[in-house]
Every structure is written in C-alpha cells, then in structure tokens.
Design a protein around this nucleic acid. Structure first.
Lengths: 199, 199
DNA sequence: CCTACCGATCGGTAGG
DNA sequence: CCTACCGATCGGTAGG
C-alpha cells in the first residue's frame, strides 16, 4: 500500500502559515526571509519548500485563509431575516473579532497585498470586492438616499471599512475599550454619527 | 575660499525624496533599492549617498516632510474663531488635499513607518500624536458626551482618521467623486452618520 | 560624481 | 520506489 501523507501534514502546514503571518506582520514580506520562517517553526528551510513551492505561495495562503474567514462570517451575519442595521452590527462584530483573533494575517493582508503577482492578488481582491458589495447593499437598505445615488455607495462602504480596518494600526484589545465596544461604536458612528456613538 | 553647496542642492535633494517616495509607495521600502532610486533620478548610486547617509535617512525625509505639512495644515485650520464643526471640516479638506497631492508620501507613511528605527519613528509618531489630539479636542467640543468619557476620545478620533486615511487604498481622484466631496462625506458621517452623509 | 568592488544574505535547489 | 525531510550550497543581488 502506498504511503500517504504524514498524519500531521495539515498541522505542520498551518504552523508555517501562522509563523509566516507573524513575521510578515512584524517586518513586511520582503523584510522576513524563508530562513526566518523556518527558524520560527524549528525546522529547516528545506522543510518549508517541501510544503510550499515559493515564498509567494506562503503569502497567498496567509491572505486567502483570512479573507475566506471574513467571507464566511459576512455570509452568516447577513443570512437571517434581521433588519439591515442589525445585520451590519452582527457583521461588524464578527469582523472585529476576526481582526483581533487573526491580527497578524489581517495586517499582512492590508500591507502586503501588492507583493503578490497580479494573478494571485486578483483572487484576493475579488473576495474583498464581494465584502464591499455586501456592505454597500446593507447601507443602501438602511439609507434609501444611498440606493438612489449609485455612485455614493462604494465611497460610503469604504468610509465604513476605513473605520474598522484602520483599527489594526492603533487598537489594543487589552486597552480601555474592548473589540465589541469598538465595533458598536463604529456601527453607531455609521448610523447616527458621533452623538450616537458616544452617548 | 571654501567651495559652497551646489546652487541646485535643494532641488536635487527634493528630487531624490520624490523619486524615493514613488518607488517606496509602489514596491515598499524593502522592495525598492537605492540603485532603483538612482536610476529614476538619472544619476548614480553614489550621488544618492552624497546627499543621504543611508537608505533609512531617505525614508525619514519622505515621512517627516509629509507629516510636517499635515501639522501646518491642521494648525491653520484650527487657528481661527470658527465653530468646532467648521474647523473639523476645514481640517479634513486640507488633509484630503494633501493626501491626494502627496499620495506617494502618504502611502509610504502608512505602510513603512515601522521600517524606521525606533528613535526616528518616534519623532514621526509624536507629530501624528499631536494631530490625533487636535482632532480629539475638536470632537469633544462638538459632542459634550465625549468630553466626559475621556477613554472614548482617542477611539472616536481614530474612527475618524480611519475614514480619511483609508482612502489611500481605494480613492481615485479621477473617479466619480472628488476629494472635496469625499472629505465632506467623511465629516458628515462623523457628525450625523450615514443619513447626513448621503442626503 | 563614477566604476569597481566588499561582506552578508537573499530565495531556491542539489544529492542522499 | 515512495514520502519526508536534512546539511550544504547554488547563482544573484542587496546596501554601502
């Protein structure tokens, strides 16, 4: 009988992605070497190349795994029969939880997407585009004026994403405000502005 | 008599910073080489090292020049006797104009700040901190509840900065919406939420 | 302001 | 003859 994959194949591969995410987040894709990743995994460079054909392939896995998780969370948050404002709140809570739980992958996605060749980055961008559209539809359902002014839908969605995506540069989950509180604050700011967000 | 600086010293130095900003923005600090900068300036690598002691020194100049421009714009926008909401609007217009006019420097600032050694990045961060405080004070003047809840002031300011800083990833000044319109939209979203921003 | 180089380290691959 | 891995080293290029 032919030998199969090692029993811990998936675990080893995931350990590589996790180590790479941490290093890419800290030093950037070009600032972290494959040797650094190997060292962090307590393995050899050759082992890394057994699991991945190239350094870029690792970067791709770091990003696609994160963006797929966001896609699934967005699907779950918008699936039910809740009001659009409640769906936006659920989606934002799920996103903030993923941003904090996968902070390294999130930072890499936002900083190093253009280090991927166009063909690979296109796949990531397509998933992101779907998330933007989903939020744009929620916002248009919440604010009828947005449904009429088609050209304003993407800018509105991007202002919203700016609030929550920018958190990776400053938010500390151990600080004075929690991730769930911050998510609510961003949603309230979107729905009612400052007075709604801090009251 | 000792030889003085070349008459075009400052122009040449600024050309280097401008070329470096374009290359760092496109490929990242670690992805662009000093030789690339020299080529773009139609000069040699040695000329670059005549004006700058290290690649990091160029990065520092790219960032500090941008952040000083933002600091001055913020000072001018908040100097008068206008109402705080109007000051926030003026400041946002000035910032968006600088973000678009110095798009390369802005992108480098947001992506590669951590490529600077701590001592140098600390100087940049201190200026940024001043901008955040300035916006936090405006927001607290606009919304009294924010003046009471001290811990919410920085998060509120950062949600605002998220909206306008995030634009560098998606905003195209040649698109369907202009920079001035977008700035107003971000201010209205901050003040009144979505319904105020798209009506 | 140029050509000619350096110590080191890069991503990726060889044989076993 | 397979998969899973190792120590050593490749040709090029980085900042200086």
């Amino acid at each position: 009988m032919a030998r199969t994959q090692a029993a811990d194949y998936d675990e080893r591969k995931d350990a590589i992605v996790e180590a790479a995410a941490a290093l890419f987040a800290a030093r950037g894709f070009n600032g972290a070497s494959v040797a650094d990743i190997a060292e962090r995994c307590e393995s050899s460079k050759s082992l890394i190349y057994h699991y991945y054909q190239s350094k870029e392939d690792i970067l791709y896995d770091v990003m696609i795994s994160h963006v797929r998780a966001l896609e699934q969370a967005a699907g779950e948050a918008t699936a039910g029969a809740a009001a659009p404002a409640q769906k936006l709140r659920d989606l934002t809570q799920a996103f903030m939880a993923l941003y904090v739980g996968a902070a390294n992958r999130h930072k890499v996605l936002l900083n190093d997407l253009d280090k991927l060749p166009d063909a690979r980055s296109g796949e990531i961008v397509a998933v992101q585009r779907g998330l933007i559209d989903k939020v744009g539809e929620l916002l248009a359902a919440i604010e009828p004026a947005l449904a009429k002014r088609k050209g304003a839908r993407v800018p509105a969605a991007m202002l919203y994403f700016g609030m929550i995506n920018w958190t990776h540069t400053w938010f500390d989950p151990k600080g004075s405000i929690g991730a769930a509180q911050l998510a609510d604050m961003a949603v309230d700011m979107t729905l009612k502005g400052l007075s709604g967000a801090v009251k």
